[in-house]
Design a binder for these strands. Structure first.
Length: 541
RNA sequence: GUCCCCUUCGUCUAGAGGCCCAGGACAUCACCCUUUCACGGUGAAGACACGGGUUCGACUCCCGUAGGGGACGCCA
């Protein structure tokens, strides 16, 4: 069994962002290229912004991309699957509370009852304008707990030693050092009782035996805080007395009552169930029973917008869902995104997902930020479209053809022929809409761009002879050979050649002067329709 | 402001001291293919941020400067 366990930990506040998708992808690739496990954990401790809908959207996006997880919420039912659950932080509350209060009780953390206003003033008075000094005297755990129970607003801050230097060997950045005075006594439990990101993130990574934490560079400085928590956790892991103390909180009905009361007040949505509490306790026990794992960190550079700022909504399409709904192939998005900060060992630009999984290596991930280029994405997409076989492409294109043509009445040969002529003309699947519109008699119309061809003196003759030729053919569909005979006949009878011949005919077929080759177009449209169209064109003169 | 990170063509990148007066891809331009439009092919233009070291030799190592980014939240 492999010891590699990685996780993707989104907070469900909207659709999956392309940056998030790349983080998920690299985690997935890292795990899968080495036979490791990929877990999905939901970081929904920000009750205001996290929603169930958003969770479903994120899950849908991950699935669309094909980034399947080994553990985490089930994609359909959202029920936990795996040995290390619960996988949603909102349901792991008891763990954070027990550890938080353990730290409180042991003088590693303290209740801070200062108000926002007081804190603001202190910040302003500080030398650098934003640090918050530790209070002169700290309230005891007992006193603090009493006050909190009475409804006073108190956050819990971790005591910072201010004198350690933490060193990490970052998988992508190499050796990085953090001095603990980079941060102050940071909050681990908000005054509403909810834990803060850095606290639960470190706890969960530890309890879930996560071996490698691959995330975006913006989290680099968070590593310090998480390392501090890891240090405390390691100490806890070593001491059976301390373990007992933490587990004791779960046994205390007084404490659990306090926690549930807190949760009752803040949780608007689903609260952790008794089952979740039990599983949380199990999770802690499992942690104590297994080896302590300090993960290796890897911080990938950011994805930037064209203005070199962190990619965000104001840059346009940034969610995977938007690319999904505008006709991008998931493999193409994966392909393109993988190239942001990573490169193929053979300098290839186009490759399949399966190949990527085989060939991915974290050592080829680079440190510099990358600008997201929609034009290249588009090209990558067109390449993937071209490489699809006709039937698969047809399946992909089908949703866009709804209401454009009658997709039920076509046969396999038609599909093959149509895909063959159109696959080189699509950058996006949605382009099929416009491409196929002229296939439908109802939506056939003479395009404005055809004016030039309609103005030629010879055009009328071409239309007339073309119609006459069509009428001599008594077949439902014509072939490319039929067309070349007809083309010769029209050329001779109307006495025109070159563009004066072909452009008008194309106008009489699809209403546009430009497009696919006529000998490919003609077999796709019933002869009856061709006649009708040509007559419409003639009438438009 | 403080701390941290980054810096090769417009963009994504290759490059781990001589293979590099720097290679590939997108975009751009030209030509070819072609009845048109696409596709495809060929080619052109286009970069080592700057300054100091180290070295016989630096895109590659070190130090500075400049620029960009990130973090400094009871967001994640």
């Amino acid at each position: 069994m492999s010891d590699i366990r990685v996780r993707f930990a989104p907070s469900p506040t909207g659709y999956l962002h392309v940056g998030g998708a790349r983080t998920a992808l690299f985690n997935y690739l890292f795990a899968k290229s080495q036979g490791g496990e990929f877990v999905l954990r939901v970081e929904d401790t920000d009750l205001e912004r996290s929603t169930e809908e958003a969770l479903k959207m994120q899950i849908g996006d991950l699935q669309w991309l094909g980034l399947d997880w080994d553990e985490g919420p089930n994609a359909g039912t959202l029920a936990d699957e795996g040995e290390y659950g619960p996988y949603r932080q909102s349901r792991r509350q008891a763990i954070y509370q027990a550890i938080g209060h353990f730290l409180l009780k042991n003088g590693k953390a303290y209740f801070d009852f200062r108000t926002d206003e007081e804190l603001d003033t202190l910040k302003k008075q500080s030398a650098d304008g934003h640090s918050i000094p530790r209070p002169e005297t700290l309230v005891s755990y007992e006193e603090g707990l009493e006050r909190v129970k009475k409804g006073e607003q108190g956050a819990v801050r971790l005591i910072n030693s201010f004198e350690k230097t933490f060193k990490v060997n970052d998988l992508v950045r190499g050796d990085v050092e953090f001095k603990s005075d980079m941060v102050g006594d940071f909050v681990i439990l908000r005054s509403n009782g909810m834990p803060v990101y850095n606290f639960c993130c470190a706890i969960d990574d530890a309890l879930m035996s996560i071996s490698h934490v691959l995330r975006a560079e913006e989290h680099l400085s968070n590593t310090l805080r998480q390392l501090m928590i890891y240090e405390l956790l390691e100490e806890l892991h070593k001491s059976s007395d301390q373990q007992k103390e933490v587990l004791g909180f779960f046994q205390s009905s007084d404490f659990m009552g306090f926690v549930k009361d807190k949760l009752e007040k803040v949780h608007t949505g689903a609260k952790p169930s008794e089952e979740d509490f039990k599983k949380s306790e199990e999770s802690l026990k499992k942690f104590f029973a297994s080896d302590f794992v300090l993960p290796q960190f890897g911080h990938m550079s950011l994805i930037l917008g064209p203005d070199k700022q962190k990619l965000s909504k104001r840059h346009g399409a940034t969610s995977c869902n938007e690319y999904h709904t505008t006709g991008f192939l998931p493999d193409a998005l994966i392909n393109y995104i993988s190239l942001l900060g990573w490169s193929h060992p053979d300098e290839k630009d186009i490759f399949k997902f399966e190949e990527l999984v085989k060939i991915f290596s974290i050592s080829r991930v680079n440190k510099s930020p990358a600008v997201f280029d929609e034009e290249k994405l588009s090209w990558v997409n067109s390449q993937h479209i071209k490489e699809l076989d006709n039937q698969s492409l047809w399946q992909e294109v089908l949703p866009w053809l709804e209401g454009v043509i009658d997709t039920d009445s076509v046969n396999e040969a038609w599909v093959n022929a149509a895909m063959e002529t159109y696959k080189t003309r699509m950058d996006k699947l949605s382009d099929a809409k416009e491409l196929f519109a002229p296939m439908n008699d109802q939506s056939f119309a003479i395009d404005g761009a055809a004016q030039d061809a309609l103005s030629w003196d010879s055009t009328k003759d071409v239309f007339a002879t073309w119609i006459a030729e069509l009428k001599t053919r008594d077949k439902e569909y014509l072939t490319a050979d039929d067309f070349s005979e007809m083309q010769d006949a029209v050329k001779e009878k109307a006495g025109v050649k070159g563009k004066f011949l072909f452009m008008p005919i194309r106008v009489a077929i699809i209403g546009k002067p430009h497009g696919a080759e006529l000998k490919e177009l003609v077999p796709l449209i019933p002869t009856k329709s061709l006649i009708q169209r040509a007559e419409t064109a003639l009438a438009a003169l």
